[in-house]
Amino acid sequence: MEQPVAYEESVQGGQVNGAGVMRGSASYEMTSSDIARVRDFIREFLTTAQTVHGWDVSARAMDVALLVASELATNVCKYAPGPCLVDLECDGTTLGIVMWDSGPILPAASAADPTRIGQHGLELVLMVCQSFEVRREPVGKSLRVQIALPDSPDNNPSGHTTW
C-alpha cells in the first residue's frame, strides 16, 4: 500500500531559491498495480518542480523518468517482491531517483542478444540515464539514477553520458 507522499525542500535564508533542492519519498508494497503509482508519483513530483519552481523539465526528461521508473519498479515486482522505497531529489537540472528494495540479488545487464525476447529493461535504463549505480544495503539494495532535466538548444539531453 502506498504511503503518503512527503515533499521536502532545502531552505536557504528562509526561502527556497533557484539553487534549492526538492525532495520526495514514497513507499510501496510493490504489487504490479504499484508500478503505475510510482510513475504517478514521479510525474506529480516533476510537475510540481515545473509549476512551483519554474524549473525546466523537458518532455524528453519526463518521458525518460517515467520509463526508468517503470523499468525499475517492474524489476522490484519480479525479483524483489515486498516493500520498496522511492526517493526523489531535484535541483532544477537533474532528477535523482533512488529505489530501495529488500532483494539481495544485484541486477546486471544481459549480454546483447537480438533474439532475446524481454529482459531489456536494465539496458534501456543504462542508455537513457546520466548515471546508474547499484549499492548493496544492510537489507537489500538500492538503485540510483540521474536524469538530465533540460535539453540543450539542439534538443539533445544536456550532460547525457552514453554507455
Rank of each mutant, 00 (worst) to 15 (best):
P150D: 09
V11A: 07
S142H: 05
Y28P: 04
E29G: 14
Q12K: 06
K141Y: 04
M22S: 05
S32I: 12
V145Y: 12
P150S: 09
P83W: 01
L122P: 01
D151K: 03
L88N: 01
K141F: 07
W163E: 02
V76H: 05
H120F: 13
D113T: 11
E44N: 13
Q50N: 08
W100H: 15
L85M: 14
E133G: 01
T161V: 14
E89D: 05
Q12C: 08
V139W: 06
A6V: 10
P114Y: 11
A112Y: 15
G24S: 15
L122H: 03
I35E: 00
K141M: 11
V16F: 04
L149P: 00
V76Y: 06
W163G: 02
C129R: 01
Q130A: 06
R136I: 02
H53C: 08
L85C: 09
T162M: 10
V86A: 13
M62T: 11
A73E: 01
G14H: 09
R23Y: 03
R37Q: 15
E71M: 12
M22I: 04
D40I: 14
D40E: 15
T161E: 03
A6T: 10
L85I: 14
D87T: 00
E71N: 10
E137T: 08
E44Y: 07
G54Q: 07
C90L: 04
M99E: 03
D151T: 08
V16D: 00
V57I: 13
W100L: 10
D91M: 04
V145N: 01
M22H: 08
L88V: 05
R43S: 14
E137M: 15
S33G: 11
S152P: 01
T48H: 08
I97L: 13
N155P: 00
S27T: 14
A65S: 15
R23N: 02
L126G: 06
E2Y: 03
P138H: 01
S152K: 11
N155G: 04
V5R: 09
F41S: 03
N155D: 10
G24C: 09
W100F: 14
S110G: 09
A36P: 07
T74Y: 06
E29M: 11
A49M: 04
D87A: 01
V57N: 07
I105K: 12
V134L: 01
S25F: 06
